[in-house]
């Protein structure tokens, strides 16, 4: 619930999304530690003389004063804390930060306090800004976010028979919520036939190790992770699938990121 009583309140926040609203206003989606995700209106934010708009750019972390409104609270004051300048000069990083913010926006309900998600997002943006490997930042963020919103993949035992996993290539199912051991996959295949192939996909041992590492290791160790291209692709596809399955729709910024990467690759070749 939004905090009651006081007519105005102060909060820290990160801007997840913003769109034009009415004549000269902006509707802003804000992630705050104490009040969770909020949608607030910044009145007059598109007028050139506004004192707010510079503080209301996408991804900015700032201090905000909000006044309670009927449908949306109104943003009355804004002050930037972190602008993440380096992210803004690089289209790939813009795409990656876009994915972070869109994931939070889509997974979180409005006005549910989420201090852990806030810290996670803040740290991920700091890491992107400091030049850490963008893919690794994204992977770690996704894995931790799934944990925090209740979609943690089961990676240490088989989701069907619950036996601990042998160190061999496994199978994984988004629908079942984690790793399926080869024995259970065989049984599933015998029972369900081709349907089994639709809900279960193969998982290489290396990718499983990386996923486990992302789930359990602390960030200072994860940030040094260097992945061979094929493992990176496997992990990326799987994490994207995980998000899409639970959100029931792909990410717009995910598509954006892929296109930008593809166009840069094309540019480099000739």
């Amino acid at each position: 619930m939004r905090p009651e009583r006081a007519r105005t309140y102060r909060t820290e926040g990160i801007i997840l999304n913003r769109r034009d609203w009415g004549e000269a206003d902006r509707l802003i989606t804000l992630l705050t530690p104490e009040h969770g995700k909020l949608r607030v209106v910044a009145i007059g934010a598109r007028k050139p003389t506004t004192r707010k708009s510079g503080h209301l750019e996408l991804f900015t972390r700032g201090l905000f004063v909000l006044a309670r409104g009927r449908t949306f609270d109104k943003l009355t004051q804004a002050q930037t804390l972190d602008y993440f300048t380096n992210i803004r000069h690089d289209l790939t990083r813009i795409g990656q930060a876009g994915v972070l913010c869109e994931l939070v926006d889509r997974f979180l309900e409005e006005a549910d306090a989420a201090p852990a998600v806030y810290d996670l997002l803040h740290n991920a943006l700091l890491a992107l800004d400091s030049g850490d490997n963008g893919d690794v930042v994204l992977f770690h963020f996704q894995m931790q976010l799934f944990d925090l919103v209740g979609y943690r993949p089961v990676l240490h035992q088989c989701v069907v028979c619950e036996d601990p996993l042998e160190p061999v290539a496994q199978f994984i199912s988004v629908a079942l919520g984690g790793v399926v051991c080869p024995t259970c996959y065989q049984r599933l295949h015998a029972d369900e036939g081709p349907l089994a192939k639709q809900i279960v996909r193969t998982l290489s041992l290396n990718a499983l190790k990386v996923l486990r590492f992302l789930q359990t290791a602390p960030w200072p160790r994860i940030r040094r992770l260097r992945l061979p291209a094929e493992v990176r692709e496997e992990v990326r596809t799987l994490l994207d699938l995980w998000a899409t399955h639970h959100l029931e729709r792909g990410l717009r910024s995910g598509r954006f990121l892929r296109e930008i990467e593809a166009s840069y690759k094309k540019e480099k070749k000739p």
Binding site: N17, R19, L58, L91, I94, G95, A97, G98, V99, C101, E102, R252, S253, R255, F256, L257, E259, I260, S263
Partner: peptide
């Protein structure tokens, strides 16, 4: 304009 959150691409 190019926009990651609205999925607007250069093309």
């Amino acid at each position: 304009a190019i926009s990651p959150v609205d999925g607007i691409l250069p093309q």
